[in-house]
Design a protein around this nucleic acid. Structure first.
Lengths: 241, 241
DNA sequence: CGATTTCTTGATTATTTTCAACGGAGGTGG
DNA sequence: CCACCTCCGTTGAAAATAATCAAGAAATCG
């Protein structure tokens, strides 16, 4: 259970033995599980505390009065939701589970200055999320439909690989085309058609919920994808070198 | 000089006399001025420290290899750029001045845990930026062209009003139509035409660099704008109540 | 197995971009 | 002071891109 924390968060700062002991001793009571497809917290609710994803996929979204939705981020194992969220009066967005998820509720002792190593690691992780959000704005504002779709798939693949959740050129991808549409700001029908183009250009295979990227470099090039913004320490790249 | 700090940041947390003394004693050496239209730090550079805007407008942007640009945020007086930015290897975005700006460089003593009141106020401010970024994603992904343009103008007006930079229904707006295009992810030509529509619907007047909103409520409604996400403590609303 | 969700496709319509051109404002140097 | 230049705003027309509408096929789930 600790492993997702260390994999996802410990990577960005040195956690000493005392830090890890704190995490382990405080883990048990604050771990929660949610089934797939449930809201964990809703837009308008009073915020409680940040969450660290231990296992499964979650996502953040905002709803407009006209019922349209925009997915604003994905939370993968090791990811953290907004750290100081407790300071706000109301949630400006909802967080929901995409698959069954296990989360760690980050109650005060873990995020406060009492354990500087942990707090530092968490805040660097938050900074990484901010960089991802900026890149998503570029995606939504400046890239064409096929580029947007390819870009988000490249991003997810890189992020999953960094936490050991890929195998070869494959990963689990629990997204429907509707989810992809709400992520990329495109209509469902358009996502379907551009996905077909990418498939027939042999840039991806999407069957069941398994995504295969037969030629990651080519998809990256076609999507104007550059992984620098992710600030990942990529295990696969280290091993390959 | 302290006033912009207290107006923009002190609003979100209680700063005690000692905090304010620290800020004032450390202000002088770290204040810098930039002329309009200059990069303060560039994508790819090694990050130095966060900035607090004391006066003037700055903005953050990302450039794609194909020369297209996306503006990802505006920094108004009292706003802070990413706090822990020093932890990253390279800037994922550039920061530039739109007008002449005065900034406070937030060197370590101000952001560290040594002055918890200041650190808290700054981190709440960062959280507010994250909420704004999420709303921008909704803007880019889910709103139509006229809604996008109206929405960003409403946002800027509210943010300026919250720091006392509006007078009546007017404010200074140093943006060209090209800037608006790079913010909203639209082409320059299209921004020009939708702006004309908004003008002829009497929802805005834009002459020189003065923006007038004769009917803010109507523009908000037309743009699906709801100010909750800004988490502002709005002086004008308090006075009006 | 039936019911529901998800995926797929074609046709039509709407929105947005691109291309091309011109006018005005403001600054610079002769 | 005027000629010139550049940046900014404006407009019309054509082309490209994406949304909407409608309907049927495939997959998934109790």
């Amino acid at each position: 259970m600790t492993s997702a924390f260390v994999r996802g968060v410990g990577r960005y700062a040195t956690l000493d033995a005392a830090d890890i002991a704190v995490i382990e001793s405080q883990l048990e009571p604050q771990v929660r599980r949610y089934d797939a497809g449930h809201d964990i917290i809703r837009q308008g609710d009073k915020p409680l505390h940040p969450y660290l994803i231990l296992d499964g996929w979650a996502y953040c979204y905002k709803t407009l009065p006209n019922r349209r939705r925009q997915i604003v981020s994905f939370l993968l194992p090791g990811d953290v939701s907004d750290l100081n969220i407790g300071s706000l009066r109301r949630m400006d967005h909802s967080i929901a589970s995409l698959t069954a998820v296990t989360v760690l509720e980050l109650t005060h002792p873990l995020t406060s200055g009492t354990h500087p190593g942990i707090a530092k690691a968490l805040s660097v992780r938050t900074l990484a999320s901010a960089a991802i959000q900026r890149e998503w704005m570029v995606n939504l504002g400046q890239r064409s439909a096929p580029e947007r779709i390819g870009h988000i798939l490249c991003e997810l693949f890189h992020r999953l690989r960094a936490v050991g959740l890929t195998s070869g050129n494959q990963c689990f991808l629990p997204l429907t085309q509707t989810d992809l549409a709400e992520t990329t700001g495109l209509s469902l029908v358009h996502v379907n058609k551009r996905l077909r183009d990418l498939r027939s250009a042999d840039l991806l295979i999407l069957r069941g919920k398994i995504l295969t990227l037969p030629n990651l470099r080519a998809l990256e090039a076609a999507s104007l994808f550059n992984p620098d913004y992710l600030n990942l320490v990529d295990v696969a790249d280290i091993v390959a070198a």
